[in-house]
């Protein structure tokens, strides 16, 4: 059951992983933040789910412009963290 509930976010994770592997290197290292916008969104979707994750990611991309200072900017902390497989997909069990 939980695996099914995690399907949407894992689908998004798959899309982002492909993007990070194939498209992102085309224009190289451009992000003014660390982690980069795509990794930020990836982590946000992994921990916060598709809707809030995409929202966080979109807000981050808007913040990342030539007028922003940049710097280290991690996703908001979450009390319970999901376990992430080595490939980046979200596993059903929780991690403490």
């Amino acid at each position: 059951m939980r695996t099914v509930l995690l399907l949407p976010r894992n689908a998004c994770v798959a899309v982002l992983l492909v993007y990070r592997k194939l498209i992102s290197p085309i224009y190289g290292d451009v992000c003014r933040y660390y982690p980069s916008c795509s990794r930020y969104t990836l982590e946000a979707i992994q921990q916060w789910g598709v809707i809030r994750g995409v929202g966080l990611g979109a807000w981050r991309i808007l913040r990342c412009n030539p007028w922003s200072a940049g710097g280290v900017d991690d996703i908001p902390e979450r009390s319970h963290l999901y376990r992430i497989t080595t490939r980046g997909f979200v596993a059903a069990e929780e991690r403490n």
Binding site: C31, A69, G70
Partner: peptide, 12 residues
């Protein structure tokens, strides 16, 4: 970079 208030990267 953040402390210096600048950044060499272009953003997307």
């Amino acid at each position: 970079y953040k402390k210096a208030g600048t950044n060499p990267l272009a953003s997307c």
